[in-house]
């Protein structure tokens, strides 16, 4: 996702002279191509995220289209007030890109984990929260965010995420992308866990359970039309995310769910637990630890179905 982002922002910088890329002193050599095409629109803002968000807002208020980029926890919780007051209160078109979201940087410890960022950012008025499911969605999400002309948080994995979409899907902020059609359960994925969710659906299919998979890249705004459809068609709707079960996609759907009249389907939230991880391990380890592997997801879904 990271490399695709760097490539797409470089293309966009050529097409749109309003685009400015600000980096929080990461991405060594990653943006070399960008700097070749738009040297005067690249700023290494140093390790000073609060200032970077304020700077971005100042640029946006003058008609530019800043894209601020650094590691997810440092560009969200570190400078949350600047996001709230500078970006969102002004409703200024700043795109905040958090790289290494979830547990992409698992081995670096909890300072670099980002399991609460969706919860914080989606609570702020005017903010849009977009979590692409694969590298194809990253390119489309970045373009959609630029077109939106509003505050957007773009939550990216790190690198090496597999491509899920064989062809370029229709991408609209606020609309899910259907990845697999199914009849029994609906798996709503957000962000970089999407390839794992597709695998989980395939495992369920092997035992005769037909699972629909959608990429709900847009956690805010939610695709309410799709939710109404899913909760009327399926017995179980499960949200899956590499984020805490508190306040992320699952929390967001649960809020919507409680405001509805009686619905056919049950809701299951699958995500990380409410704790700081003190154990050492890579992303695969953490996913295993929190039940976010294909096999663990399919088992959790089967267990839930057996309860009703």
């Amino acid at each position: 996702m990271r490399n695709v982002f760097a490539d797409e922002i470089t293309r966009l910088a050529v097409e749109d002279k309003r685009i400015v890329l600000l980096s929080g002193d990461i991405g060594n050599r990653l943006f070399n191509n960008y700097k070749e095409v738009a040297a005067n629109r690249f700023f290494n803002c140093g390790v000073a995220e609060a200032n970077m968000i304020g700077m971005s807002t100042g640029m946006a208020l003058c008609g530019l289209r800043p894209v601020a980029y650094t590691i997810a926890p440092f560009i969200t919780t570190r400078c949350l007030e600047q996001i709230r007051v500078d970006v969102c209160y002004h409703n200024s078109p700043v795109i905040i890109v958090g790289v290494g979201a979830g547990f992409s940087y698992a081995g670096l410890g909890a300072t670099h984990h980002s399991g609460e960022d969706i919860a914080f950012l989606r609570a702020i008025p005017n903010m849009h929260v977009v979590c692409p499911g694969d590298p194809v969605e990253v390119r489309l999400a970045l373009r959609a965010a630029i077109d939106l002309n509003k505050p957007v948080y773009l939550r990216l994995g790190k690198k090496g995420e597999p491509i899920v979409h064989g062809t370029s899907p229709d991408f609209q902020i606020g609309r899910v992308i259907t990845v697999l059609e199914g009849n029994d359960v609906c798996l709503i994925s957000t962000g970089n866990i999407l390839p794992v969710v597709v695998e989980a659906a395939e495992e369920l299919d092997k035992i005769g359970l037909s699972a629909q998979v959608v990429s709900c890249h847009s956690v805010k705004p939610l695709d309410l039309e799709f939710l109404e459809f899913a909760f009327s068609k399926f017995r179980l709707v499960a949200t899956i995310e590499e984020h805490s079960r508190i306040g992320g996609l699952g929390g967001s759907v649960a809020e919507w769910f409680t405001d509805q009249p009686i619905l056919n389907a049950r809701l299951q939230r699958i995500g990380t637990s409410d704790l700081f991880l003190h154990e050492v391990g890579d992303q695969a380890y953490v996913r295993h630890r929190f039940g976010l592997t294909a096999s663990a997801i399919s088992k959790q879904v089967l267990r839930k179905l057996s309860q009703f």
Binding site: N51, M52, G54, T57, M59, L61, L64, E81, D86
Partner: peptide, 25 residues
């Protein structure tokens, strides 16, 4: 009025972005 203020420490970073914008533009 060019910027919302009230929480202190926000005006200078925003102004810095505006000053850079003048160079870019």
């Amino acid at each position: 009025i060019e910027a919302a203020t009230g929480s202190l420490g926000h005006g200078l970073p925003i102004g810095l972005g505006m000053a850079l914008a003048s160079q870019i533009q």
